[in-house]
């Protein structure tokens, strides 16, 4: 059911990208997303594409895993492209009744399509090479300056890792309950929309009950281990920068500079 969503689906492999510090990958992804919207010209996109292809090759993750994420946004992608194609004013190259396609529209549509696709592939590379827990650690570390203004950074990071941890558990639970109800003759596949929603009740009630029970158990287990929030809490595997992380930062800055250059020169 949720098989197509790549986010949070770590692909274990032994690559340089897997070994990088998650903070580098997180900042790198943010900068990559900004760059995708920064460049406008053909040369600029060629540059970004080259970098993206290199990253895909470096990650040692099969490309089809990244395409899975793309499939999930396919509809959004199509809508964006169609709207851009028909609604951008400019030099008309095709017209029928009230629909007209402009040269600028086609360029804009392709540009938006490429941007969205790169955005998803770029962030998929991060989520495929980084475990969700590494990612929340990275966020906690990167946002820790906000603690000065009393933002509950640790708590938010903890909630995120718990939520991520629970996704597979609840999916498995859904599958189990669904099967149990199908074994009692439940029907989740036919009927109109109202009937289908009503048919979901035998699935949703036990699922909520189980989710609350699990949350309760987890809270109890955390308290039994003296969890008291982020104050003075150390980590089992603290994040440490190594030589390759610094090299990566330099490359990321270089990449950003390159993109700014392409933007300014309008290539």
């Amino acid at each position: 059911m949720f098989k197509d969503v790549t986010i949070g689906q770590y692909y274990p492999a032994d690559s340089i990208l897997h070994k990088l510090d998650p903070r580098v990958k997180f900042l790198g992804t943010v900068i990559f997303i900004v760059s995708v919207f920064l460049v406008r010209g053909f040369a600029g996109y060629a540059f970004v594409t080259a970098v993206l292809v290199t990253l895909i090759a470096l990650s040692k993750v099969p490309f089809r895993f990244m395409l899975k994420g793309l499939r999930a946004i396919l509809i959004i992608l199509c809508i964006t492209m169609i709207f851009n194609m028909f609604l951008t004013p400019g030099e008309v190259i095709f017209q029928k009744w009230i629909f007209k396609i402009t040269r600028e529209g086609v360029i804009q549509a392709v540009r938006m399509g490429v941007r969205l696709a790169y955005l998803v592939i770029g962030s998929s590379i991060m989520t495929l090479t980084t475990t969700p827990n590494q990612l929340t650690d990275a966020m906690e570390s990167l946002f820790s300056p906000l603690k000065v203004v009393h933002a509950p950074v640790h708590e938010i990071a903890m909630m995120m890792s718990i939520a991520l941890r629970f996704i597979p558990i609840l999916m498995e639970e859904t599958d189990k309950i669904m099967k149990a109800q199908i074994a009692r003759g439940a029907d989740f596949e036919s009927g109109g929309i109202v009937k289908r929603i009503m048919n979901m009740i035998p699935l949703l009630v036990p699922l909520f009950v189980s989710a609350f029970r699990r949350a309760n158990d987890l809270a109890m287990a955390m308290e039994a281990r003296c969890y008291h929030g982020g104050e003075g809490r150390t980590q089992m595997k603290p994040l440490k920068y190594s030589g390759r992380d610094i090299v990566a930062y330099i490359l990321i800055i270089g990449f950003l500079a390159g993109c700014i250059f392409f933007r300014i020169t309008r290539l």
Partner: peptide
Amino acid sequence: VFQYPENQLF
């Protein structure tokens, strides 16, 4: 009847 079938009660 699945394992822990009481989880299916609703």
